[in-house]
């Protein structure tokens, strides 16, 4: 068993996962990206178990010279639009292919956040991260299998952007130093004025606020924990097949965020979501004819 930190090693993770030597950076079919564009995002095509896939990863070593707040895996405007453009390119090139033949998208996740800066706010960073999420949701809904593999940091809005729109989400187990959270417990402690020990105690029975992949697993935000680095390729491949089979069966919301909501209830982590939606549905049914 190999246990080593994978934080900051997005490029190495690509090589660990895809077929040896198969990754072609900045190339998606006939399309090519400029290597200068959004260097914090690594995109390209590769093969997994002999099958063509498209990879979108973070590069923690890249510095975006033109956007000083983008470094150490931060997703900036260029990065997010490059990621979105990659997804649209795959959808366009595969538009005529049947659902099971469309290329799967693999998101390798190691990002600490979306770029926080004045220029980003002036030009609308919210659009950039939104654009990538809409592209992923569309790809997922039109038949591409989208798998996210968390290898390092999956923090707050950056995880929403790069990960949470996937059909299925895998995470390296906590021994690898994997971080999934909105805020570390120290910050929650500052806000709630409860000490860390008390918060840790509360988190044992309620996963909604504490930091860590285990809590996201219990809430249905992580489908499966991968416990060996060597298992990443086979686990991802297995999930691609599961996703494609589920979609072929034609059941609505059998993958993706709505499915993860149901999974969160099955695992006892999100017990209040469904009763709320059911109550609203029942109350609307009673008045619907006034409106429809």
């Amino acid at each position: 068993m190999t246990v080593e930190m994978m934080i900051g090693r997005g490029r190495e993770a690509i090589d660990m996962i895809v077929d040896p030597g198969s990754f072609q950076e900045n190339r998606i079919g006939e399309s090519e990206f400029s290597p200068e564009l959004g260097p914090g995002a690594v995109v390209g095509e590769a093969k997994l178990a002999g099958r063509d896939i498209v990879v979108i990863a973070n590069d923690a070593e890249a510095i975006n010279e033109r956007f000083p707040v983008v470094y150490f895996g931060v997703i900036g405007m260029e990065e997010a639009y490059k990621m979105a453009k990659t997804v649209y390119t795959v959808m366009r090139q595969d538009a005529e292919k049947a659902a099971g033949e469309k290329r799967p998208l693999l998101l390798i996740v190691d990002t600490p956040g979306n770029a926080p800066g004045k220029i980003e706010e002036i030009f609308g960073m919210n659009k950039a991260t939104g654009a990538y999420q809409l592209a992923l949701a569309e790809a997922r809904r039109c038949g591409h299998a989208v798998v996210a593999m968390v290898i390092g940091r999956a923090i707050s809005g950056a995880f929403l952007c790069h990960g949470l729109q996937a059909d299925h989400i895998l995470s390296l187990s906590p021994e690898f130093g994997t971080m999934i959270h909105v805020m570390p417990l120290t910050s929650i402690s500052r806000i709630t004025k409860l000490d860390i020990e008390r918060l840790e105690q509360l988190a044992e029975n309620n996963p909604v606020f504490a930091a860590g992949p285990d809590f996201f697993y219990r809430l249905g935000g992580v489908d499966e924990m991968v416990t060996e680095l060597e298992d990443m390729p086979s686990a991802i491949n297995r999930h691609i097949q599961e996703i494609e089979a589920a979609k072929a069966a034609g059941v609505a919301d059998c993958t993706g965020p709505m499915y993860h909501g149901k999974l969160g209830e099955q695992r006892g982590g999100r017990m209040h979501r469904r009763p709320v939606i059911e109550r609203m549905t029942a109350e609307f049914a009673a008045v619907a004819e006034q409106y429809l």
């Binding site: 939104g130 707050s156 929403l160 729109q165 909105v182 910050s187 996201f216 249905g220 709505m258």
Partner: peptide
């Protein structure tokens, strides 16, 4: 932040 993980997952549902 008091229920940050559940709130985050709900955001993904709304985007979808």
């Amino acid at each position: 932040l008091h229920e940050a993980n559940a709130g985050l997952l709900a955001h993904a549902e709304v985007m979808d």
